[in-house]
Computed example of a mutant assay.
Amino acid sequence: MVGNDGVFGASQALDDKVSLNLVTVQIAGKASVMAADRLRALASELPDFKALLIKYEQFFLAQVQQTAACNAVHDIDARTCKWLSRMHDLVGPDLLLTQEFVARMMGVRRTSVTTVAGALQGAGLISYSRGRLHIVDIERIRKRACECDDAVRSHFRRMFEAVETDTHKDRCV
C-alpha cells in the first residue's frame, strides 16, 4: 500500500519502462501526479531525490514480499489487523469503505470480512456501519496483527529514519 508516505510508478518512470501493475485507490484523498518525463528530468538534476525514489521502491518491494508471505501463512483476523494498522498509518482512523471492497483488497470472501469486522467491533477495536469504519483502539489492533505489521513498520523506519531526522533537523534550524 502506498499513501502519504510514498510514490507509485517511479521506477518505471526512471527507466522509461511500462508499468504492468493495476493500481486501485482504496481511500479517497489527495494525490499528486507528475509526468514520467518530468520525474526523470528532476531525478537527473537532483541525485538526492533520485536516491529517495529508489529507496522507496526498495521499501515497496519489501512490503509486497512481506504481504505475499503473510497471505500464505496468517489467518484473516491477524491479516485484517495488519491491514488496518497500515491504513491507520497512511490515512488515519476513519476509513470510508465497504466490506466487499476490503474483501477484494485482502483476497478473501466478504463473509470472512463480515465475521472479522463483527469480532473487532464486539471487542471495541473498531466501529463499523454502512461503509464507514473507525479505528477506535489502534494499539490493540496492532497487538492482534501478525508480526508482518511490525516487519513492514521496521523496514520503513530503517530505510527512512535518516530522511525523517534530516527533515526534522531542517525545520529546527
Rank of each mutant, 00 (worst) to 15 (best):
G29N: 02
L14T: 07
A28N: 04
L52G: 06
V25N: 09
S19F: 02
L84Q: 03
Q58Y: 03
K30C: 06
C70M: 11
T111K: 09
R109G: 03
Q65R: 14
V73C: 11
Q99M: 01
Q12R: 07
G92L: 05
Q65V: 12
D89S: 15
D75S: 01
L53S: 00
F101K: 14
M34T: 05
M34D: 00
Q66I: 04
Q63K: 11
Q99Y: 04
L84T: 02
E100M: 05
R109Y: 05
C81H: 02
L20I: 14
F60E: 03
A62R: 04
R104H: 10
A68C: 12
M87P: 03
K17F: 04
T80K: 11
P47N: 07
S44Q: 10
Q99P: 02
A62I: 02
D75H: 03
R38N: 03
V108C: 13
T80G: 08
L61R: 11
V91P: 06
R79A: 07
D77T: 11
R38S: 04
D94T: 11
A31W: 08
V108W: 00
H74E: 13
T80P: 00
D48Y: 00
Q66D: 14
F101H: 04
L96H: 10
W83E: 09
V102R: 09
M105R: 07
G92M: 01
T67I: 04
L95A: 05
K17M: 01
N71S: 15
L90K: 15
F59S: 10
D48M: 09
C81Q: 01
R38C: 08
P47D: 09
T98M: 06
Y56M: 02
A43I: 08
A28T: 07
V91A: 15
L14E: 00
Q58H: 07
D75I: 00
